[in-house]
């Protein structure tokens, strides 16, 4: 097994998000307000690469992921798949493009029809899109089940007969049915036990290598994202605060939030002394009432007056990293 090679730096851009915004109106005691779930995110995903999106609950990463495949309509901004704007497509136009991108969810059980057997689950998208005769579809379903590690005896089982990890593999097989080029995986392993999590991560890595897939991998666990992704985007309160190569971001975070997030990972410690860590104070602010200026400033240990007034934009730094911070952490500071 060799390393799944990171995407060529000049591979064609497969997916592009341009200033995607998603606000949910809600009613509170203070009247109508907006939950600013995604607040202007732009990024590009190149063919064959894995982009990891990481952040804590409420940072908008899942909402953004759903906007990317148009499971929900963004409030503004646009998403381009293979150069075509899919945000403003009609349902019919979108239907033919849907074969190109698929989504995998955190809870595979909730997204599987409990009355449908494994093979039928995988066949369903192929039937909807009329991809061949019954025999061809069945043969491909069996092949896909084998690809994710099930022998033929599993084909006639129902979802409840599968364990959590097996269901996630079944969900992956279904996502692969239409030979998509892009998979958006929303917390695909966070509901699984550690040993099963590793199996699914390995499977995703193998599939990417065999089928030249492009992934957008959304997770809250920075260690997992670092493991699977070529590039990492860090989100905080609906905004992208840092974007860069996986190794670089992990080993040398430039945004103070990334730095704190990394520091919070419970590393397996083999030292006699427990290492000193940056522990963020306070809770995540409410996405209804975002702090002025930089959204992270109330919890940031480097924050100065300007941070509370002026919102920093995502800017390319000298080392090629994109950081939205007035005072990025210095290179090699770790």
């Amino acid at each position: 097994m060799t390393a799944s090679s990171p995407a060529e730096p000049n591979a064609p851009i497969l997916l592009e998000a341009r200033d995607v915004v998603k606000h949910f109106p809600i009613r509170t005691a203070q009247g109508r307000q907006q939950v600013r779930a995604v607040d202007g995110v732009s990024l590009k995903v190149r063919t064959g690469e894995t982009l990891g999106l990481v952040g804590e609950s409420g940072c908008g990463k899942s909402t953004f992921g759903r906007c990317l495949v148009k499971l929900i309509d963004p409030t503004s901004g646009s998403v381009l798949f293979d150069g075509e704007d899919i945000t403003h497509m009609s349902r019919r136009e979108l239907r033919s493009r849907r074969t190109g991108f698929q989504m995998i969810f955190q809870d595979p059980y909730a997204s599987l029809n409990p009355r449908r057997r494994a093979a039928a689950t995988v066949e369903e998208p192929m039937r909807t899109h009329g991809m061949g005769t019954d025999q061809e579809i069945r043969a491909r379903a069996i092949h896909l089940l084998q690809t994710v590690g099930f022998d033929e005896s599993y084909a006639n089982r129902y979802p409840h007969e599968f364990s959590g990890g097996q269901r996630q593999r079944l969900g992956i097989a279904r996502a692969l049915a239409l030979s998509p080029r892009l998979l958006i995986a929303d917390e695909p392993v966070s509901a699984l036990d550690v040993s099963i999590q590793a199996q699914v991560l390995n499977l995703l890595a193998d599939l990417q290598e065999e089928q030249k897939l492009t992934y957008v991998f959304i997770a809250h666990d920075l260690a997992v994202v670092h493991h699977i992704a070529d590039r990492i985007g860090v989100m905080y309160l609906g905004e992208l605060v840092e974007l860069g190569g996986s190794t670089e971001v992990y080993n040398n975070p430039r945004h103070p939030y990334t730095e704190a997030l990394l520091s919070a990972i419970p590393v397996i410690d083999t030292d006699t002394e427990v290492r000193e860590r940056i522990v963020l104070t306070g809770d995540l602010p409410n996405p209804i009432d975002k702090p002025s200026g930089c959204a992270f400033s109330p919890r940031c240990r480097y924050a100065q007056d300007i941070c509370r007034v002026e919102k920093p934009l995502l800017q390319i730094q000298l080392d090629g990293r994109e950081v939205a911070c007035h005072f990025p952490v210095a290179t090699g500071a770790k």
Binding site: S4, A198, A223, T247
Partner: peptide, 13 residues
Amino acid sequence: SIPPTDGTRAVRL
């Protein structure tokens, strides 16, 4: 099964 946290990236777990 845990992705290494020492900064290196494993091929497979």
